[in-house]
Design a protein around this nucleic acid. Structure first.
Lengths: 207, 207
DNA sequence: GTCTATATATAGATAGAC
DNA sequence: GTCTATCTATATATAGAC
């Protein structure tokens, strides 16, 4: 128990700092958010932040990693569960979309902060973000490849581009929902998104 | 010629400041970007910025309006042109997607800065951004409604949610392209996106 | 491990010369 | 209309007490 897990004392303080930072940075952006604000919201002094993290930037980078891992894990879990019950690759995409929507609904601030930085090169944490995006995209790619191999999807599908687009569709759709259509139930949003993922927007189409 | 158009002397200075601010804010974010940096890149002194704009925030808000108007205009123009040549609503969506991709490819920095702020409430310029998003979404909604009226799209489509999702798909897809698959030609990206807009991802589906 | 100072730098904004 | 000089506030980060 010497590692910095959530069980240790140090882990608890770090967890509170993560949660405080997520909310503040999501609302104000990284640079507008001061270390003092983060410390105050977490109920500790500023010096404690610098004891636990080397700098403001380092806190943010570790926060990104800490928050992104569960997202990718949820997507993978959803796909695995769908395949386990004998579902198709298209059904797996639906399940992943639902899992993605649920994650964003549960952690809208974390997602906002992520998206605000994801497509910006030239920032110190961009390589870390690119890697995290790559993991999530990789999960989607596997499902697409399986669908192509099973003859379920067209072989001409560009897996790399499509995975990024699908991921973008779910995340952007989820944030648009949370920001401009709050209160709408997840089922309605999922229903609006599925045609985009499965090909049923055009009436009469679809498998 | 007393208005602040691009033809006037004042308009020229403001235009240079816009362009400088777009690049810098896209890379660094609003708060990390200093007025001094913007002035330097535009080739003027800091005082000149404050003569032309009341504050840093005001410069940014006017920049958002200034940059978003052409985007919505391009989407509307693409849809109009497609309908004018007798195209379907689905074809209009394709044309809008292409117009959107082309706009983002031409102005990636502007789009980055836009997306980074779009889904954040609690910022002073959020109402301005929401309004601009509403205009663009409105253009998409009109096309969807026309498609439903013509029996081309399913009547159960939730126009409001779908418009936001479609817009998000194009913008997110375009930024993902610019950031993680640069060099790919626009045709390939458009081809990867169209199945999501028209319903052809699933093999054998589609109208 | 956490807190209370404090050092140092740099931001936004303004006043007044030209 | 643009520039230079400057005021004032506030940020990051550190040192040392507890």
């Amino acid at each position: 128990m010497t590692r910095t897990g959530t069980g240790t004392r140090r882990g608890a303080t770090r967890q509170r700092l993560y949660e405080a930072a997520i909310t503040l940075i999501a609302e104000q952006g990284f640079s507008s958010t001061t270390v003092e604000q983060i410390a105050e919201r977490a109920g500790v002094a500023k010096g404690t932040v610098y004891y636990n993290f080397g700098s403001k930037t380092e806190l943010f980078e570790e926060l990104l990693r800490h928050g992104a891992r569960p997202f990718t894990a949820e997507l993978a879990r959803a796909a695995r569960a769908e395949f386990a019950r004998g579902g198709s690759a298209a059904a797996a995409l639906d399940a992943m979309a639902r899992a993605g929507l649920a994650f964003v609904a549960a952690q809208p601030d974390l997602t906002r902060l992520f998206v605000a930085e994801l497509w910006r090169p030239n920032r110190t944490w961009h390589s870390a973000l690119a890697e995290l995006r790559g993991h999530a995209a990789g999960v989607v790619e596997e499902v697409l490849e399986r669908g192509v191999a099973d003859g379920e999807f067209d072989a001409s599908v560009d897996v790399g581009l499509a995975a990024g687009a699908l991921l973008g569709t779910v995340v952007a759709g989820a944030l648009d929902w949370q920001t401009f259509h709050p209160g709408r139930p997840i089922d309605e949003v999922h229903a609006a998104l599925c045609p985009l993922l499965r090909g049923r927007l055009a009436g009469g189409g679809g498998p």
